[in-house]
């Protein structure tokens, strides 16, 4: 993107105009998320900057919305439900997904494309349709409105992410390592846990993080499959936004943004580690 020294005036103007445009688009991307962070410290029950906040007066800022989040029982119940549901769903998706990804990356799999299409389908089908179908079917078999129902539904939604990340990691996996391990007398299970697993672990963990985020962030399916007893954090936010909008939502949003920054960093570090590990393997 260097401007060459003999650029004409028009080119120069266009060059800088392009940077300005890109800057504005980045602003559009990031500003809404950044705006809510200071607003969540608002001392008033408003959704906009009070004159006091703009003048940076200490009185205009407070932690009362955070306090509300941590003391209000419905928010706490929602947080507890989210924390109960997401890890179980992640565990299920990672366990089934990793196993299947290892199977899928074997050299001879019959009907691989069809199987792949079925396994990825929860990601393709619009959430409202998955939610409708699950609502109908789960009420038939008595899973609607139960903890197990929500966990199974979320596990199904998280599986495509595990499959995609783990198969991507396995593409670079050197199969001669497992052959060497078998040659040295290790059984298939021992080979998997001692040789294959440590090498694909970054892929498994980042797939698991995707599955976790999918479940933790999911609202449409839980809205239909769950009942009041499984009200999760996003569900509570959804109700809050639709009915009695309170600035506590902004405090929750800020906490969630912080969590997603942490997760993003983790995935990025894992990706680099995975690339480094794959760079070391002799393939």
């Amino acid at each position: 993107m260097e401007l060459h020294p003999y650029a004409s005036l028009g080119e120069k103007i266009w060059h800088y105009a392009f940077y300005v445009i890109c800057g504005l688009i980045f602003f559009f991307l990031i500003a809404p998320i950044l705006t809510i962070i200071p607003l969540s410290f608002n001392a008033e029950n408003f959704f906009t900057f009070t004159p006091g906040m703009l003048a940076f007066e200490a009185d205009a800022y407070s932690l009362r919305h955070y306090q509300d989040f941590f003391t209000n029982s419905s928010w706490q119940q929602a947080l507890a439900n989210s924390v109960k549901i997401a890890p179980m769903a992640t565990l299920l998706s990672v366990a089934f997904g990793t196993l299947a990804a290892v199977g899928l990356s074997q050299p001879h799999v019959p009907a691989r494309r069809a199987i792949m299409a079925i396994l990825i389908s929860p990601m393709i089908v619009p959430l409202i349709i998955s939610a409708a179908g699950m609502y109908f079917f789960y009420s038939r078999i008595g899973l609607q409105g139960t903890y197990l129902g929500v966990v199974l539904a979320h596990a199904a939604l998280g599986i495509p992410f595990v499959i995609i990340t783990v198969t991507a990691t396995l593409v670079g996996f050197d199969t001669s390592l497992t052959r060497a391990s078998a040659n040295l007398g290790a059984g298939p299970v021992r080979t998997f846990f001692k040789v294959q697993m440590p090498l694909i672990l970054p892929g498994v963990v980042s797939g698991g993080l995707f599955a976790f985020i999918t479940s933790f962030d999911e609202v449409v399916v839980v809205l239909f499959v769950g009942s009041a007893g499984q009200k999760t954090l996003p569900w509570q936010m959804f109700i809050g936004l639709r009915e009695q909008i309170s600035p506590t939502i902004l405090a929750v949003a800020t906490i969630l943004v912080t969590i997603s920054i942490l997760l993003l960093t983790t995935v990025e570090l894992l990706r680099r580690r995975s690339e480094r590990l794959r760079g070391m393997s002799p393939s």
Partner: peptide, 15 residues
Amino acid sequence: PFWTSLLVRTSAWKV
């Protein structure tokens, strides 16, 4: 933004 909760982004726009 890609990683931020959908509800967070929607509430930001609502605000």
